[in-house]
Simulated scan of single mutants.
Amino acid sequence: MKNKYKKGQFIKVKVTGIQPYGAFVETPDHVEGLIHISEVMNDYIHNLNLFLTVGQIVKAKVIDVSEDGKLNLSLKENDYFKRHERKKEKKSVLEELNQTDAIGFESLKQKLPEWVARAERIQ
């Protein structure tokens, strides 16, 4: 049987099961595949259930086809998951404070105008 799926191709797949290490998926013509947890997005994912659910249909990229025809897939180029990564890039002001910064009323007073200006640019 010749496999019709090729490396680099984008396909829609349905999530059929979720394990701590990845999500099992199936194509409309019943070819099975796996999206490893490291292929969902570039950020660290602790709980795959926060991003995928059984029955969900997602667009995935074929990164490999095994000899038995099973697919290894990636969601890293899926626009939805890319947008989710960008949201995480915006850190709160508190996360940006360095341990070496003197934290007190005077240093907060000095930083406040910078933080307000940045917040206004984001909105």
Rank of each mutant, 00 (worst) to 15 (best):
S38T: 13
L52H: 09
K91N: 09
R83D: 13
D43Y: 05
D64R: 12
R83W: 04
V54D: 07
Q99T: 08
I37K: 06
L52N: 11
D64H: 14
F51E: 03
L75P: 01
V65G: 02
N72P: 05
N42A: 10
L97Q: 02
F24S: 09
K12W: 11
F51Y: 15
V54E: 15
F51T: 05
T100G: 03
E67L: 06
L48R: 00
L73H: 09
V65I: 08
K88Q: 12
E39S: 13
V93S: 05
F51S: 01
H36K: 08
E85Y: 03
H84G: 00
D101C: 05
K61W: 02
L48V: 04
G69W: 02
V31P: 14
D64L: 08
L73D: 04
Y21W: 14
G33S: 01
E96L: 14
L50D: 15
N72Q: 06
N78E: 14
I37Q: 12
H84P: 01
P28R: 03
G22F: 06
V15Y: 05
R86S: 12
V40I: 15
H46F: 03
S74C: 09
K76L: 05
T100C: 05
E96R: 07
P28E: 07
I63K: 10
K88V: 12
H84R: 01
T53M: 04
Y21S: 12
M41L: 09
I45Q: 02
K88E: 12
V62I: 13
L75V: 04
A23E: 07
L48E: 00
E96G: 05
H84K: 03
